[in-house]
Amino acid sequence: MASQGTKRSYEQMETDGERQNATEIRASVGKMIDGIGRFYIQMCTELKLSDYEGRLIQNSLTIERMVLSAFDERRNKYLEEHPSAGKDPKKTGGPIYKRVDRKWMRELVLYDKEEIRRIWRQANNGDDATAGLTHMMIWHSNLNDTTYQRTRALVRTGMDPRMCSLMQGSTLPRRSGAAGAAVKGVGTMVMELIRMIKRGINDRNFWRGENGRKTRSAYERMCNILKGKFQTAAQRAMMDQVRESRNPGNAEIEDLIFLARSALILRGSVAHKSCLPACVYGPAVASGYDFEKEGYSLVGIDPFKLLQNSQVYSLIRPNENPAHKSQLVWMACNSAAFEDLRVLSFIRGTKVSPRGKLSTRGVQIASNENMDAMESSTLELRSRYWAIRTRSGGNTNQQRASAGQISVQPAFSVQRNLPFDKPTIMAAFTGNTEGRTSDMRAEIIRMMEGAKPEEMSFQGRGVFELSDERAANPIVPSFDMSNEGSYFFGDNAEEYDN
């Protein structure tokens, strides 16, 4: 993207840094990872977990959730003011799984939030270390993106479920800051804005008074975040219109849905970061690795190297396929839920299948599930090659597409044709070009129609051997075009429920 120079890199967003050079960025990201790792080690000690239990991804998720809940100030305040039966607002906890007599047992633990905050700050040299908290939120978000298709949420806001490739980060909490905003897809931002506008339509006082002023500035800020994701002048001009509207209503909703559809071809720039579970960072720190000293990046080879040398386990339900569970977590670790499966298959070195073909449910185990038949197995999170994460949407291309997802959002900077089903997408653009945004709409449609099938995206960008740390010898991959490109292809993934 041309304006790259004016933006802070995501590592800076990730670490609240002012302008830093590459070495400083690597050190501050490393410091953040160190903090998460030290916190995780301490929690495993508190909970008396064995090494194996500490490497269980379900335990990692519970521990991450506990610290996120302990620092969720708004919710904590709300819980104190609106006490609900049987919930102690000062405590947080969740299921911890232990191996007892050759069987997995679930144990519900409860801790004072104050105590968890103390352990977290102690692991982070006394700081609140917001960057580390956001990092864990993005890992949870990436896992949700890989596990669930947001059909219901899309339909509720009037969008087409086939636009799911635009929904990265749709389950990120509001408090995820600049680093969170960077990884949100165009569809996620559109959905947040539509929800806001709908509230304004239904509630006369939404934009009024002292609160209304705050609401208005939040609305304009979200519009600017979305505008910054678009790469064409016409899309940005249309966002200006939406932002400046005196009284946002149905016309703005129409414009936003139009823009979301246009992003299936004229893709937005959305950041991709490899955020790993805390149970990967903990053992690495415990083994003596100093992330701050060595430096770390979320968008280069580092996460690949770390996963190459990590042992992570997962509980497996009786009829689940461990290899499929591994694929789910591998995609989440690489922030690749909406990437082209052919690119992923090449990088991973084994075939990556669409969601609907995987015999696996989510990673988390519900409290009512029976533990008797639970097994555990090693997650295979290694890769054959590594590639640089991208934040450009890439230019655009036609490809055989599917009944489910009709476009992709690249996660890796790797040369390819970008699949999208042009006739299906263009069919949504018939007729409606009147109104105050008509010239911009016409211009956007013209650009979409001009998108050429034979153009290559990320020209000359390749993948790298894991021994090639400096990215000196790019390998331009070859793809098996007979395979499906979309992950949520004609899909039956479970729906995400809060």
Rank of each mutant, 00 (worst) to 15 (best):
D34N: 09
G54M: 09
S376R: 02
T147L: 04
G431A: 11
D88E: 08
R446G: 10
L264P: 07
H272T: 03
E18Y: 12
E80P: 00
K214W: 11
S438R: 01
S217H: 01
A178C: 05
D203C: 09
P354H: 06
R416G: 03
V242Y: 09
S376W: 11
I57N: 08
D51M: 10
W386F: 02
R38P: 12
V329E: 01
M105S: 09
Q58Y: 13
V285W: 03
E320S: 08
G268P: 13
I475A: 12
R121T: 10
V100F: 06
L172E: 05
E210D: 14
A323R: 13
M371Q: 07
I201R: 00
P419M: 13
R204L: 09
G431Y: 15
G282C: 10
I445E: 06
T360F: 12
M222G: 14
L108K: 12
A22V: 15
R99M: 04
P248E: 08
G185T: 05
P318A: 12
S402D: 01
Q231L: 11
V67N: 15
L344R: 02
F412K: 08
A22I: 03
D468N: 10
A401P: 12
G212H: 10
S345P: 11
L315N: 05
S50L: 09
G394D: 09
M1F: 10
A323Y: 06
E292G: 13
M191I: 11
Y487V: 00
S245T: 09
I265Q: 10
L306P: 03
N370K: 10
P423Q: 15
L172S: 08
I194T: 12
I119D: 12
T147G: 04
L466C: 05
D302I: 04
R195H: 05
N432P: 13
E80M: 08
D72Y: 06
S478Q: 15
K227D: 08
A123D: 03
A181R: 08
I257S: 01
N59R: 10
Q409R: 00
L259Y: 01
A260L: 03
R246W: 07
L49Y: 15
W120S: 05
E494D: 12
R26M: 04
P318S: 15
G5Y: 03
V299Y: 02
G177D: 04
I425Y: 02
F338E: 01
K184R: 09
I119F: 05
S478N: 00
V186K: 06
R106C: 10
G362A: 09
I25E: 05
L418F: 02
S314D: 05
G282I: 08
N498Y: 02
T15I: 15
W386C: 06
M371K: 08
S9W: 07
V100I: 11
S467C: 13
Y111R: 02
P419G: 11
Q459H: 11
A129Y: 01
T232A: 09
M136H: 06
N211S: 11
V414N: 01
R261L: 04
L298Q: 08
Q308I: 15
N473F: 15
S262T: 08
V408I: 07
F258L: 11
N397V: 10
E46L: 03
K293N: 10
A427N: 14
E115G: 04
S50F: 13
F258K: 11
T424F: 02
L344W: 03
A27E: 04
L381S: 06
T6Q: 00
T134I: 03
S359L: 11
K422W: 00
R361F: 04
L56T: 14
E292D: 08
Y52M: 08
V285R: 05
E73I: 15
Y487F: 06
W330F: 05
S359A: 09
Q231H: 15
S478D: 00
N321S: 08
S310H: 12
A260Y: 08
L256K: 03
K229S: 07
S262E: 09
S326E: 04
W330T: 01
Q398F: 13
A428P: 01
L466N: 00
Q231M: 13
I116M: 00
V408Q: 08
S383V: 13
Y487K: 08
A428I: 11
I138W: 11
K422E: 04
K98E: 03
N205W: 09
T350I: 04
P453N: 15
T134M: 10
E53G: 02
Q364S: 11
Q241H: 06
K325N: 09
G300V: 05
N124Q: 09
L68S: 13
N397Q: 05
I63S: 05
L56E: 10
E24D: 05
Q398G: 00
Y289S: 11
R102K: 13
N334V: 08
D340H: 14
L61N: 12
S486N: 08
Y52E: 13
A70E: 04
E443G: 11
L344T: 14
Y385F: 13
W330I: 11
Y97V: 11
Q241T: 04
L172P: 06
I265E: 00
D240Y: 04
L49Q: 09
I63K: 08
R267A: 05
T92W: 06
D160T: 08
V363Y: 01
L79M: 13
I63Y: 04
Q20W: 01
D101T: 15
G485M: 07
T424W: 09
D88L: 03
N21K: 15
R208C: 06
G393K: 08
R26C: 01
A387K: 09
T232N: 13
W386D: 02
G431T: 07
I365Q: 08
M66P: 04
S297E: 01
K198P: 02
N125W: 04
I301A: 06
P322D: 12
P322K: 01
R216N: 07
R441M: 08
N250M: 13
P95I: 06
R204S: 01
E244F: 01
I116E: 03
R174F: 02
T437K: 10
P173S: 12
T62D: 03
G158K: 01
L341G: 03
Q409Y: 11
Q364F: 15
E449G: 08
I119K: 04
A260H: 08
F346R: 09
G126V: 09
I33K: 00
E14Q: 10
A271G: 15
M238T: 04
G180D: 11
G93A: 04
V329R: 06
A271D: 02
K184C: 07
I194V: 15
P303A: 15
N397D: 00
H324A: 08
Y40H: 15
I25K: 13
T396P: 03
V67C: 10
V285Q: 05
N309R: 15
S170C: 07
R174A: 00
A70W: 04
R75D: 10
Q149F: 08
K184Y: 05
G94E: 13
P322S: 11
A85K: 06
D88F: 06
L466D: 00
N395L: 00
W330L: 05
K357N: 14
A337Q: 10
R382I: 03
M331F: 06
V186G: 00
V299A: 05
D128T: 13
E339W: 10
Q241A: 08
N417C: 03
K103F: 01
S457T: 06
G132F: 02
Y97G: 11
F489V: 00
T396F: 12
T23H: 15
I388C: 04
C279N: 13
S170T: 09
V329Q: 03
D51N: 15
S478G: 12
Q398D: 01
V363P: 01
M440V: 02
R221H: 08
V186L: 13
R436V: 04
R55I: 09
L344P: 08
N319A: 08
S457V: 02
T157H: 02
S478M: 01
S9H: 00
K273N: 12
N125V: 11
Q122C: 12
S345F: 08
T6F: 00
E220K: 08
Q231Y: 01
G300T: 02
M481Y: 03
Y78H: 14
V186I: 15
A403N: 10
T437W: 01
S353L: 13
E64C: 10
H324F: 04
D255C: 03
N124D: 05
R461D: 01
M163V: 15
Q235Y: 01
K48C: 09
G460H: 12
S9Y: 10
V343R: 02
G209S: 10
V270M: 05
A129E: 07
E380H: 09
S9E: 01
L298V: 09
G435P: 10
A442Y: 02
T134Q: 03
R361W: 02
K31E: 15
A471R: 01
W104P: 04
F304D: 02
A284N: 04
K98R: 15
K273D: 02
S287N: 15
D51V: 13
T232Q: 10
T360D: 04
